[in-house]
Design a protein around this nucleic acid. Sequence first.
RNA 1: GCCGGGAUGGCGGAAUCGGUAGACGCAGCGGAUUCAAAAUCCGCCGCUGGUAACAGUGUGGGGGUUCGAGUCCCCCUCCCGGCACCA
Length: 868
Amino acid sequence: MQEKYLPTEIEHAAQARWTASQTYRARDDSDRPKYYCLSMFPYPSGRLHMGHVRNYTIGDVLARYHAMRGFNVMQPMGWDAFGLPAENAAIANNVPPAAWTYANIDHMRTQLKALGFAIDWSRELATCKPDYYRWEQWLFTRLFEKGVIYKKMATVNWDPVDQTVLANEQVIDGRGWRSGALVEKRDIPMYFFRITQYADELLSGLDNLPGWPERVKTMQANWIGKSVGVRLAFKIPAAGVKATPHPSPLTPDDLLWVFTTRADTLMGVTFVAVAAEHPLATRAAESNPELAAFIAECKQGSVAEADMATMEKKGMDTGFKVTHPLTGESIPVWVGNYVLMSYGEGAVMAVPAHDERDFGFAQKYGLPIKQVIGVEGETFSLDAWQEWYADKARGCGVNSGKYDGLGYEAAVDAIAADLAALNLGEKKTQFRLRDWGISRQRYWGCPIPIVHCEVCGDVPVPAGQLPVVLPEDVVPDGSGNPLNKRADFVNCACPTCGKPARRETDTMDTFVESSWYYARYACPDFDGGMLDARADQWLPVDQYIGGIEHAILHLLYARFFHKLMRDEGLVSSDEPFVNLLTQGMVIADTYYRESADGKKTWFNPADVETRDGVAALKADGQPVVVGGTEKMAKSKNNGVDPQALIDQYGADTARLFTMFAAPPEQSLEWSDAGVEGAHRFLKRLWKLAFEHVQGGTVAAFAGGELPDAAKTLRRQLHQTIHKVGDDIERRKQFNTAIAAVMELMNALAKLEGDDVTTRSVRQEVLEAAVAMLAPIVPHIGEALYAELKPDAVMAWPTVDEAALVQEEIELMLQVNGKLRGQIRVAAAATREAVEAAALASEVAQKYLEGKPPKKVVVVPGRLVNIVV
RNA sequence: GCCGGGAUGGCGGAAUCGGUAGACGCAGCGGAUUCAAAAUCCGCCGCUGGUAACAGUGUGGGGGUUCGAGUCCCCCUCCCGGCACCA
């Protein structure tokens, strides 16, 4: 055995062995129970970052642990290969996104292999390959024919200078990131998945996911946002709408519909607010230039909800009046910049007395505020908003005529019934969740398989003509979708009538690819359809691991897609992921410089050094701005490159440190400190094994009498085996598992003696410790086990219950809840005996001063608390 | 703004069901080894007072429940994630 721990040598040897013997190939024909362990696939951004290392090490630990426990493990890997960064790179470097992406994949695959993950590389897939997206297009056409996919107008960010649609991320302070132009909202036609049709099932299905973190289920439930409310109408009187020369969708017979969850406050409505795009607003603006200007202003800015919610609430009176459905009152109609046309009805009723946003709006514009809910003992004031104004639980009706005195539910029921009788409203269940718009006006994505024919309309591409292949020799220039300029792509024949037609040039949201890749891993080579029978053999995924930032969108879309595939007969399960582990962010400092036009250039932490509290770029020594600690991301260029770590210390050290630095679910602030400590531990482990092996072979302890020190060490060993198994399997907390083995190694180093019995205990401890660490540090684990026990198959150690037995235990002694001492009692001592021993102790005597105790609390195995 | 989460020594973190706060590691300090250094090994290490024994104090801030609270309840502050076109 080598005396020195040489990570590079043993890691290369181990990886070569695994590749040669296809060690991690998942068998489709095994009779062992399956364990499908899946980590979220990476976007091929160029190089791995620490977030990837963390994510895939967690998955690898679980995969290897289960393999040791006898499961037929599948751990696949692939590439979420379509997306915006490839187009940005293309613009910056004049490289086709395809070439850039494939080069990145090659590099990152090499990096993943160097980390020694137990991945079945035979199942690798890339979503930008036609043999993958072909089936996505096929499913699209099926769903289009079923009506699950439909077309409607939707609002996007429009850059008027670059003549292109912008992602929310590309809108910075209301301006285009490249052009700096003020961004406008523009309505364009898009294809939508009818996810709202599955809203109820997506919500109730959360109850069948005990293996998911509560916080993720809560976030999804809130996102779906099921609420029972009332859809009701205000009448538009004849006098309210003037005749106009050109046709308008509005007539005096029309009704202005709104949805509200607070129908109990209907008697307090003092105005109605409509979106800038609402027909009523459009009509009013025809004869009101000031209003037209305001509407134009509303159409500026980004479409992101965070922007909509934080911007200043503005409005303007349209001059129109509508009629209150119950009171017949005349209610003014305002345009509000915070009302979204694509949300519900594009109009809201405003009750300033009981809605905080309406309250602020009414105060700003001097609109009336009418209290219609009261809480006993509270006084209503127009000056300041009080929490209780919106309290459903405590309030009941006031100033509401026949509805006075009714609580929330009774009032809603009564009002809904009266509206129904007038044919002006009904109870309705509504979801916050909106249908999923998947059209992207971008090149580097999966083409939407639709042909636009002047005669036949939107025609889905027939299965036999799929895939619609994306040309890979394109270099986008940042102004619109280059596919529009590719005649060879655009021009085609209508599949139905054969006449010349135009191919759709929009591509799909990349969330579509990531919504079903987990299923394709079961049968990546199947060319006869989307999935074959192996999908049901492997699905659902037993353990899914990924970043908490995907808690809502990706995980909701994947759940939705699974149900779509189920309803197509492709899979039989209802949910794709049984257990979910949401790893925390890997965060790191950010550094940037801002140019005169407000554009920020971000610098990698590796290129920045801090001296005397001032951060400066190593390259030019000039200062950079410290931008705070944020999740490692391409956009902020604060990813830490793990390659340097691997080169210097080896993959096992990188893996060990990542697992040791923080528990998986917490965010992990990256710092170079501590890596050294992890490496030191591996060297120490190697040395302990080396020194033991030098003494010659010995079988692990198999029974018999032991001296106290060895007996205590054995007890600690078996306590550790119990803890490590529990930490990995149930708690999924690896830092404490590693700490427990470190403690065990510290204790082993202190065990003295070279007799056969002592050495047999040492052998037992080392075998078990190496096996327990092997899922985390597999290369050194395999190397050491081969030295300790040549030619043996590494097995997960089992707990020897007999080794855990203790005759005497120590209990903490508290007086009035404060720790004052300890007592030793027999492990089997009764409660009475423990109490007596406690009271007899010197400490108790001191505090009791001869008086009897008020109370004695005995917590078995833990402590005694004497109250005096 | 809305939804979800977090805050514990100089630092990363532990305390799993309300029962010894600070395991394990990093940094630091002291010692051994060495011609010397690195590496390695041993010891100390929340804060305040004390030579010490020990006492007081301490888990973001304020209040509460309990024999006992880092853990449960109420209020507040700050930080992080998501907000539908970053992935």
